[in-house]
Design a protein around this nucleic acid. Structure first.
Length: 576
RNA sequence: GUCCCUGUAGCAUAACUGGAUAAUGCACUGGCCUCCUAAGCCGGAGACUCUGGGUUCGAAUCCCAGCGGGGGCACCA
């Protein structure tokens, strides 16, 4: 609809001047200003040396008067051109919705371009906590939104299964295992202390009995004191690898990784978040992609050696300073893997890359883009969306979240406490760059006033009407000839809101802002509830024609509620 | 110190990305169930959009300065 108006104005302007002008058509806030407004006259007034209202009058002359969707066109205020639509224009919306069904609102702006969205990608060193939930909900909703906008979306989780944190996890598990074997030891303060570590250790103990046992004194002999936490844990890693030997260490390491990854995957599935691919960081090393990325940068002359380390000249590409890729001890940095990962993404041929990162990764954006540029890629293909932290409160008390100390609140706990639908909705209700205060007590105690239930309830009420209709054995089929009976302001408001849906999808997708959809759905539910409760607006009435017209209307509303809720990952229940 | 995000009713957030009278929920308050689900509806009160300049026909939105909140500035991941 909006597109149609846009086309009419573009043609009208083309007849007034030769240049192509990018005009804006907007929904009006106030019904007295019509349905759509165009501000072209005010913007062009200066360059055309005319008064805005005079220019508006000339533009209107070139709007066809016989267009079936336009009732009238007016000039208002400083030079707005307001467009009023005909009833007929709105009636076609219902037919569109009922015909297209689940695909109503799908747009072609994506033009089948491929987009890869990488999100969550939490280290597999413990269960997901509530902070990860935000990235999960946001990423999944954004992926659905982009799909609806006509993009080919590929969702991916980058598994950091290499590196020191994983070794710390493996050692943590092994030490707990030794404890279960009856060894007496002091657990390193830098180790992972969550209960899940005990669980993994217990499973190892059940399966391998004491086969992996070493004496605590052998493990801790000559290990630097825990006063220097980093030194202490690093020494323990080396000692564990030495005592266990390659194969056994690998066994402990792999067990920890498998259990946690399986848990994360399960957790996300329960949260309604599924991926096309779980990409392993260590595969980058085994396929020599890291080395290849480094060689490519070397060949381009973007590296240098200093103090035994290999540096990438990131500062030459807009980063604050140069970055190390290969450490003095010969190991790749995390950054080196990251460059390789992005090289791999580029090679897979995606048109757009989207990374959803926590705000703490802010410093990484520039350097990754710098590396892409240095490798000859267009850094604009990569969009990094930073999601601010979610802070969890229980009443006034702010809860601490640290995977290391094990005192975090997990995503699973949150889901069990407030429910999947409410959690998904709350997470994306605000802009991603806005801080999120999540008060558990409020979410629980106020669950009846929850906006998500308000929207779902609208869907349920409609389902209930159709249940009633079936019970009465009454027949209904959409007949556009009856739509003329929809004359009240309540019915009109519903029609207007329903017609906005495709525009909302496009705007939300283009701005990467799923929260726009949550607000729209609340609007739609609001307009529906008002209609439903308005005097004289009962749906199942004797007047067949009006009844059928209203049934068409609410069937369309139900479809749009369903479509929108599906995109944000919330269920559309038949009964509540 | 520097870079990024941010400041809107008591609280939490919107504002079609520069448009017309700043919207929604919670909290507060007055009404509505012989009626398709009251997880609902109708009404009331509540805002100098942090401050001071600037750009514009028009600013919560853009620019500059200041004040407050969060985050980043590793041969950690």
């Amino acid at each position: 609809m909006k597109q149609h108006i846009h086309t009419l104005f573009t043609h009208a302007l083309a007849q007034l001047q030769s240049k192509d002008i990018d005009i804006q058509i907007e929904r009006t806030r106030d019904a007295r200003h019509g349905d759509f407004a165009c501000n072209a006259a005010m913007i062009l007034a200066k360059t055309m040396r005319m008064r805005p209202r005079d220019l508006a009058a000339r533009i209107i002359e070139h709007i066809p008067t016989d267009d079936p969707s336009i009732a009238k066109v007016e000039i208002a205020g400083p030079g707005f051109i307001n467009v009023f639509l005909t009833q007929q224009a709105y009636h076609t919306v219902i037919g569109d919705i009922l015909t297209a069904q689940a695909s109503y609102g799908r747009s072609q702006i994506g033009a089948e371009q491929s987009v890869m969205i990488e999100f969550v990608s939490a280290n597999p060193t413990g269960p997901l906590h509530v902070g990860h939930g935000r990235g999960a909900a946001y990423g999944a909703a954004l992926a659905n939104l982009l799909t609806a906008a006509g993009f080919n979306v590929h969702k991916e989780y980058y598994v950091n299964d290499a590196g020191r944190q994983m070794d710390i996890l493996a050692v943590s598990v092994w030490l707990r295992y030794l404890d279960l074997c009856g060894e007496t030891l002091t657990f390193p303060s830098n180790g992972y202390q969550g209960d899940y570590v005990w669980d993994i250790a217990a499973s190892l103990h059940r399966e391998h009995s004491e086969a992996l046992r070493q004496s605590a004194s052998a493990v801790f002999k000559n290990i630097p004191a825990d006063g220097d936490k980093e030194l202490h844990i690093d020494a323990l890693i080396k000692r564990s690898q030495h005592l266990l030997g390659e194969a056994s260490y690998r066994l402990v390491f792999q067990r920890a990784l498998d259990v946690i990854l399986k848990d994360i995957r399960h957790d996300l599935e329960q949260f309604g978040v599924v991926y096309e691919e779980w990409f392993s960081e260590s595969s980058l090393t085994s396929t020599h992609t890291v080395q290849r990325a480094i060689d490519q940068l070397k060949a381009g002359g973007h590296t240098y050696k200093q103090e035994g380390a290999l540096w990438f000249r990131a500062s030459a590409f807009g980063d604050e300073k140069d970055r190390v890729m290969v450490r003095e001890n010969g190991q790749f940095t995390y950054f080196a893997s990251d460059i390789a990962y992005h090289l791999n993404k580029l090679e897979r041929g995606f048109d757009h890359l989207i990374n959803i990162w926590g705000a703490d990764h802010h410093g990484y954006v520039q350097r990754v883009k710098a590396a892409m540029t240095a490798m000859g890629a267009d850094a604009k293909r990569l969009t990094v969306l930073l999601v601010q932290f979610a802070t969890l409160y229980r009443g006034k008390e702010r809860l601490q979240m640290s995977t290391r100390s094990g005192e975090f609140v997990t995503l699973r706990e949150l889901r069990e406490e407030v429910g999947r639908d409410a959690a998904r909705f709350f997470y994306i209700q605000r802009k991603s760059e806005q801080h999120l205060n999540f008060d558990l007590e409020l979410a629980k105690s106020n669950s009846k006033n929850n906006p998500v239930y308000y929207i779902q309830y609208a869907h349920t009420r409609i389902a209930s009407v159709f249940r009633e209709l079936r019970e009465k054995n009454q027949d209904w089929h959409h007949d556009k000839a009856t739509l003329g009976r929809l004359e009240s302001k309540y019915e009109q408001a519903l029609l207007v809101t329903l017609s906005r849906y495709p525009e909302v999808i496009e705007m939300a997708a283009q701005a990467y802002e799923p929260h726009q959809l949550t607000y729209y759905l609340h609007d739609l539910a609001d307009v529906f509830h008002t209609f439903y409760d308005a005097p004289g607006h009962k749906i199942l009435i004797e007047d067949n024609e009006l009844r059928n017209a209203r049934l068409s209307l609410i069937a369309a509303a139900q479809q749009v509620l369903h479509n929108g809720l599906t995109i944000i990952g919330v269920s559309a229940p038949e009964v509540m």
